[in-house]
């Protein structure tokens, strides 16, 4: 077991103007969401380094020796003093993180990026459409809206997974259904024995819905093919592209608009995004692709 946070605090002044300097956090809890996704609860060892954020923002997460990667914050700022990151094991850093246990240290810097337009969404019905790990940033916003009792309209979630055993965030889905705060609709690409629910792409769930286009906004996150299909479906049904909001994933190295990796057609995904409405994206073609 390593030293306590207070001992380590004194070793370095956490508040620095170096944009590349992360702050240390301790993993206080790990939730196994499915075989490849885990949700990590992180607490800052130096409380002065804790930050406020809004749903849709991300941090640069690092495990020293294994590099850094952008990870969206999956907890709501309304919840606790800790932050949660839901991470799918995909590359070098995320594999290193998945081998870590509660009590170990990781470093984060942030929060970065433009959040979801939480004020503009007030009073509107919200349709969330997610695929796989794409629910992570939307989970932050869903829980934010739930906590702001009555400030937002009806919340519907259409969530697609590869198979029933791949369905992640089951605790959340159950809690949302149990208190009736979210109308949760699930589908899987490939059914397994005993699966009673829907099979097919997440767009098939949209067919069941009656959307009041004048007072609804859609929030999407998932693989690019899913995003494209959902955008065309929603636009076909008459939703204004300004009310379709998505958040993009990109290879990022710095997170603060310097390294150039997420530069897309004049837009820096890390600074001008990652949250965009589809009208903006249509003006910078290629960005969703």
């Amino acid at each position: 077991m390593m030293e306590t946070g207070t001992m380590r605090e004194s070793m370095r002044n956490a508040v620095t103007d170096n944009v590349f300097m992360p702050n240390e956090t301790v993993i206080s809890e790990i939730i196994e969401e499915n075989s490849t996704i885990r949700t990590y609860t992180l607490r800052f060892t130096d409380r002065a380094a804790a930050f406020s954020f809004l749903p849709g923002q991300f941090v640069m997460l690092s495990v020293p020796g294994h590099g850094e990667a952008p990870i969206s914050i999956s907890s709501s700022p309304t919840s606790t003093d800790a932050i949660q990151l839901s991470v799918r094991r995909a590359g070098r850093l995320t594999s290193a993180l998945h081998s870590m246990k509660a009590g170990e240290y990781v470093a984060v810097r942030g929060p970065y990026g433009v959040p979801f337009p939480v004020d503009e969404l007030k009073g509107r019905d919200l349709l969330f459409v997610a695929g796989g790990i794409g629910l992570a940033p939307l989970r932050s916003l869903i829980n934010y809206c739930r906590a702001k009792n009555g400030e937002y309209g009806k919340i519907t979630l259409c969530y697609g997974s590869r198979s029933p055993s791949d369905i992640a965030f089951k605790n959340d889905l159950d809690a949302w259904q149990a208190d009736g705060s979210v109308d949760v609709r699930l589908t899987v690409d490939v059914p397994e024995r005993g699966w009673q629910g829907r099979t097919g792409l997440v767009t098939t769930l949209l067919d069941d819905l009656t959307i009041n286009n004048s007072n609804s906004s859609a929030l999407l996150c998932g693989p690019p093919v899913m995003i494209d299909a959902v955008i065309s479906k929603l636009k076909e049904s008459g939703m204004d592209s300004e009310q379709i909001i998505t958040t993009l994933e990109r290879n990022m190295k710095c997170g603060v608009g310097l390294c150039g990796h997420c530069h897309m057609e004049g837009v820096l995904i890390c600074k001008d995004g990652p949250v965009f409405n589809v009208r903006t994206l249509e003006n910078i073609m290629g960005a969703t692709g």
Partner: peptide, 11 residues
């Protein structure tokens, strides 16, 4: 792991 500043990046 035995270094007091293990995994804590510094300038």
């Amino acid at each position: 792991p035995t270094d007091p500043d293990c995994c804590l990046p510094s300038e």
